Amino acid sequence: MDETGKELVLALYDYQEKSPREVTMKKGDILTLLNSTNKDWWKVEVKITVNGKTYERQGFVPAAYVKKL
C-alpha cells in the first residue's frame, strides 16, 4: 500500500496499450490499483513525468501482467 492506503501492483512485464482505455507500463513499474474485480483486466493509475511535470492516467492492464504488493 502507498502512503494514502491505496493498494499497489508491480508490473511483471512490459505492456503497450492497444486502446485508449488501456495504459502502457514497463516491467518493474509500480502502479496504483483502483479495481481488481475483473479477473482478466485490472484498472490502475500510472504516473507519467513529461518535461518535469507529473501526470496521472487511469486505464486497464492485463491482470496476469501485474502482481499485488
Rank of each mutant, 00 (worst) to 15 (best):
G59N: 00
I48S: 07
L31W: 02
E7I: 15
N51E: 12
V61F: 00
L10H: 04
L33V: 05
L8T: 08
K39E: 09
L31K: 00
E7T: 13
E22K: 04
T54E: 12
K26Y: 11
A64N: 14
Y55I: 15
D40V: 13
V46A: 10
G59R: 01
V23M: 06
K39V: 10
K67L: 12
K6Q: 12
T32H: 09
E45T: 09
L69W: 07
V50N: 10
E7M: 12
I30H: 04
M25L: 08
A63D: 01
G5S: 13
R21N: 14
V61E: 00
D40G: 07
L34N: 02
Y15L: 00
E3G: 11
E56C: 13
K47D: 08
V23A: 05
K6C: 11
D29I: 02
K18L: 09
N35C: 09
E17Q: 12
R21M: 12
Q16N: 14
P62V: 01
K27S: 06
Q58N: 08
M1G: 15
K43R: 10
L31M: 14
T54W: 11
D29Q: 12
W41P: 00
Y13N: 09
P20K: 10
D40T: 13
L31F: 06
D2C: 14
E3P: 11
K6W: 09
L31I: 06
Q58K: 09
F60E: 04
Y65I: 07
D40H: 14
Q58R: 10
P20Q: 09
G52H: 08
D29T: 06
K67M: 11
K39H: 12
W41K: 02
R57M: 06
Q16D: 14
V44G: 00
G28Y: 04
T37Q: 14
Q58M: 08
S36I: 05
T49V: 14
Y65Q: 05
V9A: 08
N38Y: 07
T24P: 07
I30G: 01
V50E: 12
P62I: 02
S36V: 07
T4S: 15
E17N: 06
A63N: 02
T49I: 14
S36N: 08
L12D: 02
E56N: 14
Q16I: 14
K27L: 04
K53W: 11
L69P: 02
V66W: 01
V61R: 01
D29M: 09
I30K: 05
R21S: 13
E7H: 13
E56A: 14
T4A: 14
W42D: 00
K26P: 00
F60A: 02
Q58C: 08
G28P: 00
E45L: 12
Q58W: 07
Q16G: 05
Y65W: 05
W42G: 00
M1V: 15
P62D: 01
E17V: 05
L34W: 04
T4I: 14
T32N: 07
D29A: 06
T32W: 11
N38C: 08
E56I: 15
K26V: 09
V50F: 10
S19C: 08
T49F: 11
G5W: 11
L33W: 01
V44E: 00
S19F: 05
T49K: 11
G5C: 13
N51Q: 11
P20Y: 09
L12W: 03
M1L: 13
V66Y: 01
K18C: 10
T24G: 08
K18H: 08
G5N: 12
V66C: 11
M1E: 14
V50M: 12
N35G: 06
V61Q: 00
K26L: 07
T32M: 10
M1A: 14
K53P: 05
L12S: 02
K43V: 14
E17S: 15
